[in-house]
Design a protein around this nucleic acid. Structure first.
Length: 116
DNA sequence: CTGGTGACCGCTT
DNA sequence: AAAGCGGCCACCA
């Protein structure tokens, strides 16, 4: 059972519900290591199943979509998210409201802090 | 075969 | 407090 890092990353991205967005670091952290943020980007770059892998729901920690994404236009991604009810402000998403598992992440952080 | 890079983030000094 | 650098995975030349 040696699932490649990509498999894990894809699994996480697939779990992102509609109307929510996740950050690369978040996905990486959930996948196993926070340093995989880069790997996440590459993983979505190959994006073998764009239909099952909503890469457009993944944004950087600034809440902005990557330029290189452009699988049909940067605005395309923004529009798709808008369709799901995600509010965009100056091309940025309100992470405080739309970041997936944002609260859970904070809780996890608290736990890690406590363990330390 | 080796080196470098990429849709990034976090840690260290 | 701010700035800089490293790091993991997979693919390309």
């Amino acid at each position: 059972m040696k699932e490649s890092a990509f498999e894990r990353i894809y699994d996480i991205v697939k779990q992102i519900p509609a109307g929510k967005v996740a950050t690369y670091g978040q996905v990486a952290s959930l996948a196993g290591n926070k340093k995989w943020s880069r790997v996440v980007g590459y993983a979505l770059h190959v994006n073998p199943d764009p239909e099952n892998i909503p890469c457009y729901r993944v944004v950087n920690r600034f809440g902005e979509v990557s330029k290189a994404f452009a699988f049909g236009g940067e605005n395309r991604q923004i529009e798709l998210l808008k369709q799901e009810g995600v509010e965009f402000a100056d091309g940025r998403v309100d992470m405080k409201k739309y970041q997936w598992n944002r609260v859970n992440m904070e809780m996890l952080e608290q736990i890690v802090k406590s363990e330390k």
